[in-house]
Amino acid sequence: MSEDTANGVRNSASHNVKENSRIIRVGTRKSQLAQTQTGSVVNMLKEQYPHAQLEVVAMTTTGDKILDTALSKIGEKSLFTKELETALEKNEVDLVVHSLKDLPTTLPPGFTVGAICKREIPYDAVVVHPNNVGKTLDMLAERSVIGTSSLRRAAQLKRRFPHLEFKDIRGNLNTRLKKLDEKDDYSAIVLAAAGLRRMGWENRISQILEPEDCMYAVSQGALGVEVRVNDPDILEMVSVLNDTETVLRCIAERSFMKQLLYLTGAVYSLDGSDSLKDTMQTSVSTQTQDEDCSVADVQHVGITAKRIPHNSQAAAEKLGMDLANLLLSKGAKDILTVARQLNDSR
């Protein structure tokens, strides 16, 4: 595609949006956090396209309905995306806003992540029971119960805080906070700091967990906008939301997870007693180059990031794969195999 042709496609897409030629329907989960996150994306789009007609469509997903089973037992990926993607496939919505960490690294045919917004703080946060206000995890009493729905968090925190016990907790953000506050089942719970900050509940955070204590999930803190591959108008429209540094970091993280099939930067046994951790880096250019961005759209771990150099995206993807292969060469596969077998037998 020539530069003139590429510019023509971009101008045509922008024209269609600006001239109100269609109502843009934005899919989201019904939870308060999901709708707050979607509202922020809608507002950013309205700033760029003030005449666009945007309509939010909220729906309930499988992950929202199944609350009595640990996520690790039913598969953590696609639980919160399947119904939304079905609506996207049926043209009932035109784009879907996700917490990117909920999206599998391989998307169904015909879908892509068309934009990744600037990342909020990616770290995990500790929220304590009202009786423990002001305390951090290392200050809690022996055998205090910590609630988390994530095997990633439990495995790492068991290793770092062996005096604590970890118990599954399900539900949306509001539900988990209510379970913590109104009962005595948990001394604290661990949540993504990004969600608490987006809801304006920073005052509930007692401790931010640095990566040395608990490495955050792949793409945690980033919002992804999923679209149909064959809808160039919408793909071009949402591309204005892309934050270059966030996109490249998330490509590297998702590539790592896709190659390794588990955690970012490290793998852990379920009880935290066995682990492998390593660091790898590369140099990429974040400078947008016209000739590079005119290349036909290419997906990197399910992401189609217009306006960001393709060679930089490829370098980020390779970094994730190389780090995963390094850990696999050191024995990560054995740790993961045992962890999966133990989880399946629980």
Rank of each mutant, 00 (worst) to 15 (best):
K183V: 03
R159L: 08
K178D: 12
S144C: 06
K183H: 14
A154K: 11
A188M: 11
V126S: 09
E120L: 03
V190P: 00
A141W: 01
G114E: 07
V128P: 04
V128M: 03
R160E: 14
L137T: 06
Q156H: 12
K158N: 10
P130R: 12
F161V: 10
V128W: 01
I116G: 08
P104T: 10
R152I: 00
A192T: 08
N174H: 10
P130T: 12
D124G: 08
D124H: 11
L173A: 06
T106N: 11
L140E: 06
R143A: 12
L103A: 15
E182C: 09
R152F: 00
T112N: 11
T105C: 13
N131C: 05
Y186H: 14
N174K: 13
R153P: 01
F111L: 15
K178Q: 07
H163D: 13
I121N: 15
V96I: 15
G195I: 06
A188C: 09
K178T: 08
Y123A: 08
V96N: 09
V190S: 01
D181A: 13
P109A: 15
A188V: 05
R197D: 08
F161I: 03
R170N: 15
D184C: 09
R160D: 08
K178E: 12
S99F: 03
L173G: 03
T106Q: 13
K135R: 07
F161S: 09
A125G: 06
C117A: 13
V133C: 09
A125E: 05
I121Q: 10
L100R: 01
D138Q: 10
K135H: 09
L191W: 01
R152N: 08
L177S: 06
L107K: 08
E165R: 13
L164C: 04
L140C: 11
T175P: 00
Q156E: 14
R176T: 13
E182L: 13
P109C: 07
K179Q: 12
I169G: 04
A194Y: 03
R159S: 15
A155M: 04
R152G: 01
A194D: 15
K167Q: 12
L107R: 06
D124I: 00
L196K: 01
P108L: 14
R160A: 12
P162C: 11
A141K: 10
C117R: 10
K118W: 00
L107Y: 10
M139K: 13
K101G: 05
G114S: 09
G147C: 03
G114W: 05
K158A: 04
N132G: 01
L157E: 11
N132Q: 12
D181L: 04
R143L: 06
V190Y: 02
L103N: 13
R152K: 12
T106I: 14
R160W: 06
A192Y: 01
I116E: 11
L157W: 02
T136Y: 02
R176C: 08
R160I: 13
K167G: 02
K167R: 11
D102I: 07
P104N: 11
V113W: 01
S99I: 09
V126N: 10
G147H: 02
P162E: 07
N174Y: 05
L140P: 06
Y186I: 13
P130D: 14
E120P: 00
M139S: 14
D184Y: 06
K135Y: 05
K183Y: 14
A141I: 03
L173H: 05
I169A: 05
Y123G: 00
R152P: 00
K178F: 05
K167N: 04
D185A: 09
P108E: 06
A154Y: 00
L151S: 01
T148H: 02
L180S: 03
D184M: 07
